[in-house]
Design a protein around this nucleic acid. Structure first.
Lengths: 166, 166
DNA sequence: GTATATGCAAAGTGTTTGCAAGCGA
DNA sequence: TCGCTTGCAAACACTTTGCATATAC
């Protein structure tokens, strides 16, 4: 069944450590270097653990290493995406957001309120299973999916704000 | 069950006419004007009936009205989106694509080959129903969904091209 | 007649790239 | 050392906006 999680589930320190290790391993495998900047960016990225924009991440990163440039953040995010450690998302507001992928993370989906822009997450086995079947039926091997629901939330504040508008 | 449709289903002339009428009606309702340019753009948009980019649409439009500028195309597409006659899509290649919405169109979803970028469409009732249920369970009223599957297609050409790469 | 729409060019926005200097393996 | 990385600024690609002119209602 659907398991909504409004707040981000929050990964344990062990999972964070595993993610960092995975990152370093992939760097080595690809013959790339581990640097102070990359570590700061990636660790923050996994720690914050939310659909973050490059810009937001840069802000956080600069609190620790003020001289890091946006190019480095963009390049690191691109690297994470290539290594399947991050998933780019586009919710239609012009900026790409990135979701960290923890090992074996089955992935969650999003439901976005079209009014207040609040984002909730959910994960549903029926859908996940069905999607897999469909890809096979059509003759594809599924790699990943993107499922976003745009809806109106029933949050009293949001409902009231909508009423006022009219 | 899933009904894949590689080629676009193609809407009948009646549906096209209905879409144009809907467009004109919404213009009137909003106190906006019907112009030669808008008609050309919107008619082509519904006729071509595919996830088109602003750029591609402009090319087509200019074959009929060479002096139309891209600003007009962008503005018209934005108008269509506001009027729920078009749906913006982002497949991650940097450009926004737009899908026409025909009246009562239940909407289709996309499966995109991560290698050759070929896009196929499908529609599945199990998923559509389940999505509706989930939104309700979480306390949202569903407005629209975005479902994209990224996968590897089994097209011989594509498979071969991938092998050559390695 | 008047408010909206157009075409053009210029400005914006988010993201990528070129390059000299810096740094990790 | 040697090649990958960084920071900066400039370049980019797509989209939006300002403004004078044109046009629909």
């Amino acid at each position: 069944m659907a398991s909504p999680n409004d707040t981000h589930s929050g990964h344990t320190p062990e999972e964070l450590k595993a993610a960092m290790e995975a990152f370093h391993q992939r760097l080595r495998d690809a013959g790339l270097k581990s640097t102070r900047q990359r570590d700061v960016i990636v660790e923050l990225f996994f720690t914050l653990d939310k659909h973050i924009t490059a810009d937001e991440l840069l802000d956080e990163v600069r609190e620790i290493q003020p001289r890091i440039g946006y190019a480095t953040v963009y390049r690191t995010l691109k690297l994470l995406v290539e290594q399947d450690l991050a998933l780019p998302k586009d919710f239609g507001d012009g900026q790409t957001r990135y979701d960290p992928i923890f090992d074996q993370d089955p992935g969650h989906d999003h439901i976005i309120c079209v009014n207040c822009r609040k984002i909730a997450e959910f994960s549903d086995d029926i859908i996940n299973t069905r999607i897999q079947e469909i890809a096979e039926e059509i003759g594809f091997t599924l790699r990943r999916k993107k499922l976003e629901l745009y809806a109106e939330c029933h949050n009293p504040e949001c409902v009231a704000a909508q009423k006022d508008k009219k």
